[in-house]
Amino acid sequence: MAYSQKLMDHFTNPRNAGEMPDAHAVGEEGNLKCGDVMRVFIKVEDDRLSDVTFQTYGCMAAIAASDMVCEIAKGKTLDEAMRMTPKDVINELGEMPPIKFHCSILGTQALQAAIKEYRKKQ
């Protein structure tokens, strides 16, 4: 299977996994039928993402991509994070089968859904 070592590392040892009880907003994407559901929790300070965590039901690529989304997003301003694309995630993770690209799409969508929710609340 064509998974990079980096992807395998983020899958076996995710740095940002877990619910965030005091999150400022939560975004969710995916459905059970396709086999991936991602939830991204964000905390915002001075218009920047001060903390980002995830919960994911899905395959190796989905879990690794979720972790990478959090990793990349942390420290970014909300505008910068809204400009993130799945390509940023794939570039960071390295090789994965093309059929798995949708995992990184879901991850960025979940993050951006969380930001939209945060902005709505403000």
């Binding site: 395998m8 899958f11 076996t12 086999g35 991936d36 039901y57 899905g58 395959c59 190796m60 989905a62």
Partner: peptide, 14 residues
């Protein structure tokens, strides 16, 4: 329940 088979396989592989 609640987890994905490929991910279980991945951690078993590890």
């Amino acid at each position: 329940a609640g987890v994905e088979g490929e991910a279980i396989g991945g951690l078993l592989d590890a």
